[in-house]
Simulated assay, not measured.
Amino acid sequence: MTDSSISKFFEKSLKERLGVVANFSGLSQDELKIIEDATGGISYNQADNMIENAIGTFSLPLGIATNFRINDKDYLIPMVIEEPSVIAAASKAAKIARIHGGFKAKSEQSYSIGQIQIVNVDVQSAIPKVIASSTEILNLANSKSNTLPKIGKGAKEVSCKEIQTDSGNMLIVELLIDVGDAMGANVTNTMCEAVAPMIEELTGGKSLLRILSNYSTKRMASASAVF
């Protein structure tokens, strides 16, 4: 089955729903058993290995939103949610959207932005020094990842900007990092921490924040539909 427009899916029994999902997605029996497992797919021992101070597991309802067609391909959308009517509303909206071809989605390249905040610095004289040392900064940043540089990803660009505040001007040094399919928060923070001492030495300033930016202007995704 490749059509996500499933008539009266909500009226089917659990066994019938699982059969539809397995058939649509090509799930194996082992994969199907994970969904059927009332513990949510993980044991206490697995949970204890994942986090600190584990005392158990916590489950929420797992449902399927139907009717979705995205970029000319049909999908069943798994949704974990405790609020009623949301999955029904999503399925209804998708049913209306598919009349005109469904949803069209696109995404840009997957770049995260890491920021190093430098204070107590002459910003205008510091910026050329940082830019002139971009290669060294990028090499140091990429040395902190065992995988990204090997697949052509990693830190790609260094940029600077001046921020004016009531307590004085500060320099923000930004690392543009191609993180591929990863979320990238940990590696971005690690790279920022690694290059901060070098930037302090170059600028004569003091680094404070060294962190992933949530202003992800280089990692945008968008979707549209006609209703």
Rank of each mutant, 00 (worst) to 15 (best):
M1T: 15
D3S: 09
S4E: 13
I6R: 06
S7G: 07
F9Y: 10
L14P: 10
V21L: 13
V21A: 13
V21N: 10
S25W: 13
S25D: 14
G26R: 07
L32A: 10
D37Q: 05
D37G: 06
S43F: 06
Y44T: 02
N49G: 12
I51N: 11
I51Y: 07
E52H: 10
A54H: 10
I55M: 12
I55Y: 14
G56P: 02
T57K: 04
F58I: 13
L62E: 09
G63H: 05
T66V: 08
F68R: 02
F68V: 03
R69V: 13
R69T: 14
I70Q: 00
D74Y: 04
Y75L: 05
L76D: 00
M79Q: 14
M79R: 04
M79K: 10
P84R: 01
S85I: 13
I87W: 02
I87S: 08
I87K: 02
A90K: 01
A90E: 06
S91T: 01
A93T: 07
K95T: 10
I96K: 11
I96Y: 14
I99T: 13
H100L: 11
G101C: 03
G101M: 01
G102M: 00
G102Q: 03
G102L: 01
K104C: 04
K106H: 13
K106R: 15
E108P: 01
S110I: 10
S112C: 14
S112T: 15
G114C: 01
Q115K: 11
Q115I: 13
I116K: 00
Q117V: 09
Q117T: 11
N120P: 07
N120Y: 06
N120L: 07
V121Y: 00
V121W: 00
V121M: 03
V123C: 09
V123G: 01
I127T: 10
K129P: 00
V130N: 01
A132L: 13
S133M: 11
S134H: 07
T135F: 12
I137S: 02
K144W: 06
K150P: 04
I151V: 15
G152E: 03
K156G: 05
K156P: 09
E157P: 05
V158M: 03
S159T: 12
S159F: 07
S159D: 08
I163M: 09
T165S: 11
D166V: 08
S167C: 04
S167H: 09
G168D: 05
N169H: 12
E174P: 02
E174F: 04
L175R: 03
L176Y: 07
G180V: 01
G180M: 07
D181M: 05
D181S: 10
M183Y: 15
G184V: 03
T188R: 00
N189G: 10
N189I: 09
T190R: 04
T190S: 13
M198F: 11
I199L: 04
E201A: 11
L202D: 08
T203H: 04
K206P: 05
L208H: 12
L212W: 06
L212M: 13
S213I: 03
N214T: 14
N214A: 14
S216A: 11
K218H: 15
M220K: 15
A223I: 12
A223W: 08
S224T: 15
F227A: 11
